[in-house]
Design a protein around this nucleic acid. Sequence first.
RNA 1: GCGGCUAUGGUGAAGUGGUUAACACAAGCGGCUGUGAACCGCUCAUUCGUGGGUUCAAGUCCCAUUAGCCGCC
Length: 321
Amino acid sequence: MNAGIILANTYHLELRPGSEIIQKAGGIHSFMNYDGPILTDSGGYQVFSLTKLRDKITEEGVSFKDPLSGDKHFFSPEEVIKIQERIGADIIMSFDECPPFPCSKEYMAKSVDRTLRWAKRGKKVHTKKDQALFGIVQGGDYPDLRQYCASELVSMDFDGYSIGGTAIGEPRLTEYHEVEITIPFLPYNKPRYLMGIGSLDMLFDGIRKGVDMFDCVLPTRLARHGSLLTRKGRINILKSVYKDDFNPIEKCDCYTCKNYTKAYLHHLMKCEESLGGRLCSIHNVRFLIRIMEEARKAIKEDKFLSYAAKILQDFGSERGF
RNA sequence: GCGGCUAUGGUGAAGUGGUUAACACAAGCGGCUGUGAACCGCUCAUUCGUGGGUUCAAGUCCCAUUAGCCGCC
């Protein structure tokens, strides 16, 4: 599908199969037989998204209950780096705290300081020099905290910088704002990564502001639930109008569109056959990657803004999803 | 021919006289943003086989009738 990089997750891999197994296999590339670029997230987001499994967050780190075995796990910023070194991705992330939205300025300020201390602690123990380590900017919607967090991380000299704490339930305009107030404080000669973003409007908004990297579960999660991305907007393949539609999803170079009809995908999804979710995921991921390919080309030809505007217009939704 | 049992939505069914007929599945619609894949939300029987009756009030009680199932001759 020509993905520039793929993402794996420290928390999930540590619980199963365990980073030692991956290390023993010769690292994540060898383990999953993929020699392209791989990034691991630190698990900081899982501390936020899996609140039910979280025991407590302290200065030292976070303790978790393993939902599979009931075992307790303790993630410190140092341990998270060590796990990621064993996993062996090309780019790894600092362990950060991702506070929920909304969040009081008092808590956010304390949280940002802790995220900065964790970033420093993690960087100190990072010895695998063929791995790039990124710092993660938090600070919510507070301009001064975002600036502070970004500047402090930059002074620590990371290999790249991530914008975290976005798309966690805040309003649309707040999301744009969070990128707006962070980007100016990150060096343009190092990668700037907007974490967890995948809707068209935010991808384009991020690109325009200078973001270099994105990752998102949205295309695959939508696919598994029957929502397919097309140039003319989203369609729900579960709808009965597709039961005898023997055309591909759309004009597209993906494996799914080259080989299967909407009627067949409709049938697979109705039956909850896992192949359905996989074929739909292939289309949605390729859809977004193709958009990114076109965006890069448009940038080189200096017509990115008109390109983005046209894509959003064709998609027929301001949000772009 | 006689006796017994059962009839509630597309389906499986709750409901033993008292406001808008439970729940599940199916169906339909929407959601999902650094992944706990197979999740969440909403909609979906003015009506209980049919026809009478009792009662202030009937899916619930009575009578008749129809259909299905079981048993006996």
